[in-house]
Amino acid sequence: MELSFHTVMSQVMLGLNNGVFYAILSLGLAVIFGLLNIVNFVHGALYMLGAYVALLGYTMLGPLLGKPDFHLNYWAALVVAPLVVGLLGIGIERTMLRRLRKFDHLYGLLLTFGLALIIQGVFTNYFNVSGDAYDAKPEVLEGAVNLGFMLFPKYRLWVIVISLVVCFSTWFVIERTKLGSYLRAGTENPELVKAFGINVPLMITLTYGYGAALAAFAGVLAAPIYSVSPVMGSEMIITVFAVVVIGGMGSIMGAIITGLLLGMVEGFTKVVYAPASSTVIFLIMVLVLLIKPTGLFGKES
């Protein structure tokens, strides 16, 4: 089989585009798991909610406010959706997850799984399962850029760049700043961090809120690419959990790198043997679990 450089690179770039979504979402999961010890099954639903805040803000918010000409534009949605969903996350942590903290973290998983089903169910009831198009892609991001080896859609390039910026900023804050040192310490021994005067329960709430906001941010980025549908989150989250298992829970950089790489592997598989592209990540997951059960970047505990 002849593999031209152009075909491979274009699929790898499109794969990277998927990879940044895996990276942002698995990063959020890793941050939440680190501090709350909860596998946040509602993450996919939060991602979907982010996309819906953008969509409904554009189509329905104006009429709802009695100003039919008002549309929440894309840039505003990039800020508003993470805020709204972040606050929802804070509410979930404060009213529900907090009560489960002294129990086995299996209960947190069950609770978030249930929440995901409820949110998805409600949206399925009111919205089109096959998806609605989000037409508010800004004009500056229309068209394509010549990367030298291929023409690449401007919007997708923007998504890759801004996602990488968000991922690596998050990594920087956690690994290299004072605030991050509280977080890392809280991951390791929350009781002692409290004894050092730090308000750990507040830190946990804000961390969960940040994880939720990241998911929503990814949802807004996804809206102009994929159609906005109630099941977009559950489809995405299955792959993201595989990414997290491969990368190893709890490593920030591990989550980012694994997400990006697996996106590209998926893209590359599309060129080599397209039917395998949707399963290749799960094959890798099986192999990794056989060889290194804690994941590529996971630490033995």
């Binding site: 004072k178 040192s181 509280y182 890392r184 310490a185 991951t187 390791e188 021994n189 002692l192 961090v193 050092f196 005067g197 730090i198």
Partner: peptide, 16 residues
């Protein structure tokens, strides 16, 4: 209670 994810200096600066 030395934090293994923190450097010596980060450990020193941790308590409020």
């Amino acid at each position: 209670g030395i934090f293994s994810n923190l450097t010596v200096e980060e450990n020193l600066l941790l308590p409020l």
